[in-house]
Design a protein around this nucleic acid. Structure first.
Ligand SMILES: [Mn+2]
Ligand SMILES: [Mn+2]
Ligand SMILES: [Mn+2]
Ligand SMILES: [Mn+2]
Lengths: 222, 222
DNA sequence: AGATTAATTTAGGTTAATCTAAAAATAGTT
DNA sequence: AACTATTTTTAGATTAACCTAAATTAATCT
């Protein structure tokens, strides 16, 4: 049996380590889960004993294959529930995360498969993050940060890095959504701000904090 | 803050005490929750301290108004989720209970209200049990046990008392569902079995164990 | 290298929820 | 009323998940 807390630790290790490809630090996990490093050490030992993690003291943690499978499953559930909340229950993209944090721990394979079907097998959640399939595999896209788009380049908004409510509401206010076309009108060296045009209409200036938290898929120049 | 465990105890007290109208025994709770009486005593003290229950040692427990509100809310969530699972996710009525036991603890008012809307404000769950409204009020129906129907009387099946998977599957096998019309063809004094006719077609003999776990709404004789 | 700083682990404790075994109160029975 | 059986409570332990403070190891900087 795997506890809710263990699931959260495993998920954290998975996400901090870029879907389980890197080793993760004790402090990193502690910060992500808002707990203390000493608690993390305890838990990480337990995860290693249970076969979910690889751990040698002072050397950081990584997930075993089994651990990765569990993590992908929790992430899959989290993101499918987020889609459900937005598509079926009229939630906005800034409202879904906390509820999905709870729902991701519900245990029922049939439940999640039927949910997947009800939603017509979505590949991405409301924030543009990919949804792992039943095997835990993730289709990765070649998205880049808006900040890395050159002057006059165009891109389609495909995701957000920061999923905080305040950032998402900022985007709403400026009518930036997934699928919006963004053109870099000009860049300002001084403060790294840039002027962008959204869907060929609105033109606004955005800070580098914004540009560094929006993922776009670059489009060929016309 | 109220914990998942506290919610389960409160719900148990509510249901064992007929929607909070009666006092409940320590052993009753222990049996319902599959725990020990000593654990119940501890928890019940805590619930009393927190203002959710009335408790004097050796005198049994009942819920305060606040406790009843919490209980009704958990039951409301449980039953709405059961409807969701059956109506939207293709579950059968014998599969939903355990998952609803998990889902009933998800905390989000908007979630449950939107779910209610999505399901078009159902009044009963898949087992015929009433769904409390937002205020915790329950519309109670005048259902009786099939066992109490006289010979030649007719009734419509409106609920089940035993919601075990084996009983529900038994009903499925004999094509008895909510809404089925049942006529008592004859009763056998010797073993309290009875012969019934279902929807005017199938005629079968059922034991008193079955008749005592099926709720019907009696129909006027024609 | 040696010293200082930062990261990590260990040691020892706390809290919620559980348990077993024993004591106390209540209920049932002669 | 006295005895017996049942129910309930108390006492004392255990486990998971935390925490603080101290010790240890690793990393960084003269
Ligand atoms: Mn999320
Ligand atoms: Mn998301
Ligand atoms: Mn149920
Ligand atoms: Mn039910």
């Amino acid at each position: 049996m795997i506890t809710l807390t263990e699931e959260n630790y495993i998920k954290s290790i998975y996400q901090l380590g870029r879907y389980g490809t890197m080793t993760v630090s004790t402090n990193g996990i502690a910060e992500a889960l808002e707990t203390k490093a000493s608690s993390v050490t305890d838990m990480v030992k337990k995860l290693a004993e249970k076969g979910y993690a690889n751990y040698k003291r002072y050397q950081g943690v990584s997930l075993t294959l089994e651990g990765k499978k569990i993590a992908a499953d929790v992430v899959r559930k989290h993101r499918l529930w987020e889609v459900f909340l937005v598509e079926k229950l009229n939630f906005t993209w800034d409202e879904v995360h906390d509820i999905a944090e709870q729902l991701e721990h519900i245990k029922s394979e049939k439940l999640i498969n039927e949910l997947d079907k009800l939603l017509d097998y979505p590949t991405h959640d409301p924030h543009g993050d990919p949804i792992p399939d039943k095997n835990g595999d993730i289709k990765k896209t070649d998205k880049i940060l808006l900040f890395n788009l050159a002057e006059n380049a165009k891109g389609v908004c495909v995701g957000v890095k920061d999923t905080s409510s305040s950032f998402l509401k900022y985007l709403d206010k400026h009518k930036i959504a997934l699928g919006s076309e963004i053109t870099v009108v000009s860049r300002e060296d001084f403060d790294d701000s840039m002027v962008i045009q959204i869907n060929g209409t609105m033109t606004i200036s955005i800070s580098q904090a914004v540009a560094n938290n929006l993922f776009v898929k670059e489009e060929a120049l016309d």
